[in-house]
């Protein structure tokens, strides 16, 4: 027992106090800053780049920085989630502040129903275990998402929404549909990671079935490959208008 207390004392506090302004190392690749000029579109294995004007689709981007040049830079801003797919496409000369203003608009009814408690069911539909590990990390003692009343449930019957990771394989499509139908209304759907948003690195696979994305309303898009826990938690806090 004494050893346990000693160990706890040795470890000290590990939780991030202010999760909305948590510092992150400068090496993190987050919100892209794009200038005018000529870029090489073909360097991106995900077709996330386009020209006239220069654009990066964060819904496809894995933030590998292969395209990094004088024109494209990646800032260590991690609040890159959005409530609409169009907002994820970053045009040249767009600043992070501009993006942040329009990215996530909390809806009154959502805030009213879910801001005190949000229980989510996660479905991995072809995910590589990267986003899954980061979602698990959201719950650990460092990030401690549970303090805001946001948790993951074991069954869709107890959930207020779905978090989908992975490009949605053919073999998982029916299970995902089942899970959606089993979740009681009102519910929200969150896509976590480049694979879920656009198929990501697997967009050319012939074993995907992405009908689900077209069929249902998506409430929140969380880019990253894999998503960073701070990106995920902050997206939910903004969406529910929770002030930490």
């Amino acid at each position: 027992m004494l050893d346990t207390i000693k160990l706890k004392y040795y470890q000290g506090d590990k939780y991030i106090k202010d999760i909305q302004n948590a510092p992150i190392k400068d090496s993190f690749r987050g919100f892209p800053i794009i200038k005018e000029g000529e870029i090489d579109v073909s360097c991106c294995p995900l077709n996330a780049l386009s020209t006239n004007p220069n654009k990066i689709d964060m819904g496809k981007c894995t933030f590998c920085a292969k395209c990094k040049s004088e024109i494209i830079q990646f800032s260590p801003k991690y609040k890159i989630s959005s409530a609409s797919r169009e907002n994820l496409i970053i045009k040249e000369n767009m600043t992070f502040e501009e993006f942040e203003k329009t990215a996530i608009k909390a809806r009154k009814e959502i805030k009213k129903i879910f801001s005190k408690s949000l229980k989510l069911r996660q479905v991995s539909a072809g995910g590589c275990n990267g986003c899954e590990m980061e979602l698990n990390a959201c719950l650990n003692a460092n990030f401690d998402m549970g303090r805001f009343g946001i948790e993951f449930t074991a069954s869709p019957r107890h959930a207020d929404g779905l978090v989908i990771t992975g490009p949605i394989t053919k073999n998982m499509a029916y299970a995902l549909e089942d899970c959606y139908q089993s979740t009681p209304n009102p519910k929200i759907v969150i896509l976590a990671g480049a694979c879920a948003i656009s198929g990501g690195i697997f967009q050319n696979s012939d074993m995907l079935n992405r009908e689900f994305i077209e069929k249902y309303n998506i409430d929140l898009y969380i880019p990253g490959c894999p998503i960073h826990p701070l990106t995920f938690i902050n997206a939910l806090l903004d969406y529910l208008e929770i002030k930490a």
């Binding site: 294995p45 995900l46 073999n171 074993m207």
Partner: peptide, 19 residues
Amino acid sequence: LGYQHRNVEKLMLNPNNRL
């Protein structure tokens, strides 16, 4: 198993490190 099948071996015919 098999739920995760994304036909990776076929995609790897045009490989890159990100894949």
